[in-house]
Every structure is written in C-alpha cells, then in structure tokens.
C-alpha cells in the first residue's frame, strides 16, 4: 500500500503541489489525469524522491518517511520501494538491453551474475524483446526502448511502478505495443501509478482515476464515476476538452 499525506512541493516561491493526499492499495492501477503544468510529473517524482517534497509524509509498503526530516539513508531506502518508467525512456546509453535490466539487480539487489542474467532474460522475454538482449538503446526503436525501461523497472520488484507519460514520446504506431505490455503487467497485479493522456487506456485498465489541477487533487474515483459522472466543474471542462467524443457517448 502507498499512502501520501499532505505532500507539498515548492520550486522557489511557486507552490506546485499543495497538500496532496493519496492512497493506493496493493494491485491498484491508478491513472493521474490533468492539464499541463498541474503537477502530475512533480508528484510522481516526489514519490520516487527525484524531487524532494517540501513537506508531508509518505508510506510505501512497510516504509514510513517524514519528508521534512528525511536523511540521505532513509531516502535511499525509500527509493528502492518504487521504480520509474520515464517519458524519455532514459535507458543507460552505454549498456545493452540486458545490461540495463541487470544493472539494478547486480548493484542494488546484489544478485549473482548468473541469477541476474536468468531474471533479466525472463523479463525481456515478457516484454517481447527476447531477441534484442544484446542491442544498445541506440539500436532500438522508441517502443522497444520503453519496453526495456519497463523490464528494468519490473526487475527491481518494487512496491509500485511509476509511469510518467510512457507513450507520449512515441510515434503513434508504437504506442500500442507499449500500452499492451503495461496492460499485461497490470493484470498480473503489479501496483502502478500512471500519468497518461491515453483516455481509452485509462478507462480500460485503471481502477482508480485521479484528476489534478493547479497542484491539488480536484476529484478522484473509479473510471465510471470520473468519466461518466464527474462532479467538479474543472473535471468536466478538462474531459470535454480532451475527449470531445465523450459528449456523444453519454
């Protein structure tokens, strides 16, 4: 379970996140929606401590952290509870696909090389890249790189995987292959928080939708509640803008 209490984040004087409370149960697939600049990326980065929250409390699994007084060591431990899939993939450029997946297993989890190889091969096969083990990122398409990124995140067996617009840097014809991998691992019960603009994906795969605007959670609920019966005016406007066809469906 992941629990965020009163998470706040400011860049200088600009407050980007304001008292965010969010609970994610084990196995949940949470999709975060919201207009550009609403703080979605910042929220994910705070969970992974790539940004340091200015205030608040975080519980991931059995690990509890008060953000204001977090020590380096605590942050390091907390980080291992989550994994991140980046918009720009961020694969280690000087390592092959399999080395990308093995890196964390060897260095952080301290597995033996044999064990790391066995696990990495299995994960790359799962994301459909069993034939690209020795390819460098520069030799892979965007969709393939992102699937390696997903395998790398899975390898760490985190409590939660965070996806920040995992398909928005991809050519349209490559979006499908990545979404179907995410779908597949969602079915296996991996807990995930996904920022995306893929509405059909959000509808089908998520069991909880969070709508953010201006650094606050405006509204949250099941996909049916949020898409079909939004309560807040801001949510309605956002949905109208992003999915015009919704107006005909209802």
């Amino acid at each position: 379970m992941i629990k965020l209490n009163n998470i706040s984040k400011s860049f200088g004087r600009q407050q980007v996140l304001k008292d965010i409370d969010l609970t994610v149960e084990k196995g949940d697939v949470v999709v975060i929606l919201g207009p550009s600049g609403s703080g979605k990326t910042t929220l994910l980065r705070c969970v992974n401590y790539l940004e340091k929250p200015s205030d608040g409390e975080m519980i991931i699994g059995d690990y509890h952290l008060n953000c204001k007084y977090a020590s380096k060591k605590q942050i390091h431990l907390l980080r291992q509870k989550s994994a991140m899939v980046f918009q720009q993939y961020n694969l280690f450029k000087h390592k092959t696909a399999i080395e990308n997946v093995m890196e964390g297993l060897l260095i952080v989890k301290k597995l033996s090389k044999e064990e790391a190889i066995v696990r990495s091969v299995a994960l790359l096969e799962k994301v459909g890249l069993g034939n690209k083990l020795e390819a460098y990122p520069s030799q892979l398409s965007g969709g393939q790189q992102q699937r390696v990124g997903i395998a790398r995140a899975l390898a760490m067996e985190p409590e939660v995987i965070l996806f920040d617009e995992p398909t928005s840097a991809l050519d349209p014809e490559l979006v499908g292959e990545v979404l179907s991998v995410i779908r597949k691992i969602a079915k296996e019960g991996i807990t995930m928080i996904v920022v995306t603009h893929e509405m059909s994906f959000a509808r089908d795969v998520a069991n909880h939708i969070v709508f953010m605007d201006g650094g606050v959670i405006v509204e949250e609920g099941t996909p049916v509640e949020l898409f079909n019966h939004p309560k807040e005016e801001r949510t309605k406007q956002f949905l109208k803008r992003i999915t015009p066809e919704l107006n005909y469906n209802i």
Binding site: L50, Q80, M84, F86, Q88, F92, K93, G104, I107, M156
Partner: peptide
Amino acid sequence: DRGQVEAAYAVGMT
C-alpha cells in the same frame, strides 16, 4: 544527460 542519473537513482543506486 541528466536523465541518466535520474534513471540510476530510480533503480535505487546511491
């Protein structure tokens, strides 16, 4: 690339 360090942190490296 800054993203490389972030990816390293994200897999839990010091």
